[in-house]
Design a protein around this nucleic acid. Structure first.
Lengths: 138, 138
DNA sequence: AAATGTGATGTTATTATATTACATCATTGC
DNA sequence: GCAATGATGTAATATAATAACATCACATTT
């Protein structure tokens, strides 16, 4: 069973196509790369991709990587509910792979910090840049 | 004494102009906003801005906000040396203001996490989104 | 069935952000 | 002077995202 099957029935055709493209890729894709991959399925304009992405991100099935202007399929069962956006990424600058991490200690520290400066936190963008274990070993 | 005077002598004319624009602004500016502000000083093309920004970011006088595609003057004496990129931002989604923070505990947690997953960290992008104390009070 | 409302789609054009490629100029060292 | 280097200027292009508007599909109501 695929990891996003549960919600998959609710997705529209375009949303399924975009979700499929991101699931098949083993790394982040830009909206325009997705568009190109889906041209054979009838996609013709960026908006078709962006509209689907908007919904998928909202559902927690896809995450947007701000520092890459790219999108990646959620690597967990899906980041719905509480976990939504309580997530961070380790982006390998060598191979391009992205590891999605959840770390309660880090998130707690962030929340404490925000509270200390009276900042009402709605979302944390945390993207680590560097080299993954695999590339490091080479 | 302005906060970037120390290194200011090393800056070229264009770098000084861009630095000035960012220092006067009390918030982040996009490269194209900077370009528009500097047209009266002879700027004509985006590259003039981007080239200056690249150097200023390198010097730690300016930070790039990945989630905004914008740039902000460093709010500390300047983030050169060790502190470079050991910095995070609280971005108010209501008024647009940005607070630059340094938090050793958070940075340590990030480093530990990276080390735990054998990720060789080169830079942390940490941008908190939400509402600042001022906007919150209104 | 006709009328209406709603959400998803399609399409074109435009705006915003960033880089490539190449020419020119200024300064320094020889 | 002349070469080397780094800064600058300029045009064109690439990449990312949104605005505006038309249409379609389907369900609900009358």
């Amino acid at each position: 069973m695929g990891k996003y099957e549960a919600s998959n029935t609710d997705l529209t055709k375009n949303q399924k196509l975009v979700m499929g493209a991101l699931s098949n890729a083993n790394g982040p894709l830009s909206a325009y790369t997705i568009l190109d991959e889906l041209r054979e399925h009838g996609f013709r304009a960026p908006l078709q991709v962006y509209r689907a992405l908007e919904k998928l991100v909202e559902l927690g099935l896809v995450h947007r990587l701000e520092s890459l202007n790219a999108f990646v399929a959620c690597q967990h069962t899906s980041c719905g509910g509480d976990r939504k956006e309580n997530v961070l990424f380790a982006i390998c600058e060598t191979c391009g792979n992205v590891q999605e991490l959840v770390n309660d200690k880090l998130l707690k520290t962030v929340k404490t910090l925000a509270s200390d400066v009276e900042f009402n936190l709605s979302q944390s963008v945390i993207e680590l840049r560097g080299q993954c274990a695999n590339c490091n070993a080479k």
